[in-house]
Design a binder for these strands. Sequence first.
DNA 1: TCAACCCAAAGGTATGACCTATTCAAGCCA
DNA 2: TGGCTTGAATAGGTCATACCTTTGGGTTGA
Lengths: 245, 245
Amino acid sequence: MDIQGLPGRLLAELGPAIASGELPEGAVLRIEELEARFGVSRTVVRDAVRVLESMRLVESRRRVGITVQPKSGWDVFDPLVIRWRLAGSDRAAQLRSLGSLRAAVEPAAAALAARHASPDHCRELSALAVELTVTARAADLTAFLRHDIAFHATVLRASGNEMFAHLGETVGAVLTGRTEHDLMPHQPEPYAVQLHREVAEAICAADPGHAERAMRTIVLGALEELDATLGHPADHGAPKRSGLA
Amino acid sequence: MDIQGLPGRLLAELGPAIASGELPEGAVLRIEELEARFGVSRTVVRDAVRVLESMRLVESRRRVGITVQPKSGWDVFDPLVIRWRLAGSDRAAQLRSLGSLRAAVEPAAAALAARHASPDHCRELSALAVELTVTARAADLTAFLRHDIAFHATVLRASGNEMFAHLGETVGAVLTGRTEHDLMPHQPEPYAVQLHREVAEAICAADPGHAERAMRTIVLGALEELDATLGHPADHGAPKRSGLA
DNA sequence: TCAACCCAAAGGTATGACCTATTCAAGCCA
DNA sequence: TGGCTTGAATAGGTCATACCTTTGGGTTGA
């Protein structure tokens, strides 16, 4: 996605290094050093640094160099930062943060979708719900994941809120990461699949309350699962049966 | 914040121009043209363009130039993009999006805060609640706003979720914008102030349910108020008394 | 001891040249 | 005639270098 161009090469190297803590807070880089290390000109280095700076990952100051900023300043919503953190040692913390975010946003998105969804969205959701059912029964995890991602993205898009819609990509990254690492059950839980169907139906039936509740159950289930696999079990409120998002 | 340096000057000019639609989707800029227009070198132009590109506001292609991208691609969570949109003609849409986001996130944050808040956070919230009460009674809108922003930011921070915490700045921008434009009542509503007190108390008492409900009332009230001032009245679910966030 | 001052280090900006991917169109082959 | 190939013009991408400006820190003098 951003591996195009020489600055992209630097970004692909420096971003993950910073996000993973390999380059810790306070670490200092110098333009000259990066020029030599990557065999590129100052122009390219500046380009890359400028982008890192716009994400608040580093700060460039005269007479000092390029300093890695404290984690608390990161632009945590930047898609690249999210991806880099998911790929590195911050993975667990990032997943937990995203989990809470999903738990907050997706139910609200489902409720909004139940009010604003177009017939097209509705058709799409219904079709995806069917696909989920089928691929789950067939234990085709790859296809299931693909449709799961599409389902959640569609709900977010159908909410009519541009900010929610943009979380679709991020949620996709989370779901992908989950099947990759936290080994999923060989067959998605039937209850979770049914919840997805309920969400789709409620949205098509313009029933915000039901859509919201079903989605909340899904996403809280995912949160619990997350805490289980990541170890640290913090309570999140309403106890529910383990679901699958 | 980013008015430092020559690239910052370009950003401060081009960003708002794009965000407000003054430079519509598909508009093409050329480096050479920008060099002349701002009297800067290619280096500076490239720097600025690179940043706009990382926000997905523009795309730079050879033989074509720098093309303004469709709004659907904007990195809507970027703080600068948010600020630029709030300042321009997209103001209403941006406020509505942010309103829904707040409605989703802040109650969840309050609930989390009730679980994880440190004694320091608790003290801070209590103090801010007092300040809100006092300044509201004194009808000191400026001070009230300042404390209101601090209150919400503190709740978000106390949630222990880094992503929530980062929304504090954005929420602040929304609240500021509200008092600036949608003329607020000369004296903040007493009921809203009380709700803030309840949130603080519930968080300090480690009562997630109460904290979440009170915060939801606040933020839904704000949403209703928003719809009222912005015209388009979409229903958001649970009917509540008009609050004030 | 502390202040003002000066110098060197490192990023910021300016140029100008050259490379390269793209597009559009002219021209060729079926 | 129509589609494909090819070639040149265009505009961004990269490079190398020189010079400016800020700033941290050491030095000097009161």
